[in-house]
Design a binder for these strands. Sequence first.
DNA 1: TTCCATGCAAAGTGTTTGCAATAAT
DNA 2: ATTATTGCAAACACTTTGCATGGAA
Lengths: 140, 140
Amino acid sequence: METDLLTRLRDRSWRLSPQRRVVAEVLAGEHVHLSAEQVHARARERLPEISRATVYNTLNELVALGEVIEIAPTGGPRRYDPNAHAAHDHLVCDVCHAIRDVPRRGVPRPVVADEDLAGYRVTDVDVVFRGVCPDCAARP
Amino acid sequence: METDLLTRLRDRSWRLSPQRRVVAEVLAGEHVHLSAEQVHARARERLPEISRATVYNTLNELVALGEVIEIAPTGGPRRYDPNAHAAHDHLVCDVCHAIRDVPRRGVPRPVVADEDLAGYRVTDVDVVFRGVCPDCAARP
DNA sequence: TTCCATGCAAAGTGTTTGCAATAAT
DNA sequence: ATTATTGCAAACACTTTGCATGGAA
């Protein structure tokens, strides 16, 4: 079992204010890919006085810590994914922009041929499967 | 040889105003991944009165036509890639955000296992290799 | 005429920042 | 006492939109 976001943060002795804890709690779970605004809205339900700036600051810190992944969709705001420690890809609905995590099974990662590297050193590969989710397929 | 952007557009009988032609010309080439602002700046060198709005409108039309690909980096403005007809991946520098095209050689595309599809119908796969470009590796 | 593309400026999103007040060490 | 975090509002970066003008079909 994976340790969850909040546990990981405590283990890193990250100073845990009420605001930060609430942001971390809002992000916990599977297939969670909220925008900053959505995080703010949900955090407010638990802690009405939390500010937008603090949400943005906190999200940026979590990303810097490597505990949350930032996703930049083609349109719309950035999304935040707490599933930072299990390598996975994303399934994105082109219609409603829903996002699902896809585990990386044994499938080999794509690789760049040496002749195409142009001197780059590659540290990571992002894979996004784009398509249509079942809900959007159902109502055309 | 690939037909270039401008030729493809003429073939589609896209109404070609001076503004649109200049935008298309600015985008022509290999490894071109300009932001809207950069397109505007370069278009202005040839056609000083072209407006930002027209550049944005034109870019959006080209994307809608499928003649240009839109790239959303994690930070910074969207980038526009005229290489829409040869399937390719991207090599992105995490430091300076330079982008290079990587041809898809015989390597198989990643696939989603049926059990992970969750009802999605997948139409496309985007692969981004993230890392550090030679220039940024040289000056740390 | 009728329609569409353009320029301009304003408005709209989404995100960051400066700063004083507050809380933690 | 010192340092870090917060809230607020303003600034900022990027993109879209409304509308009057002008050119093309």
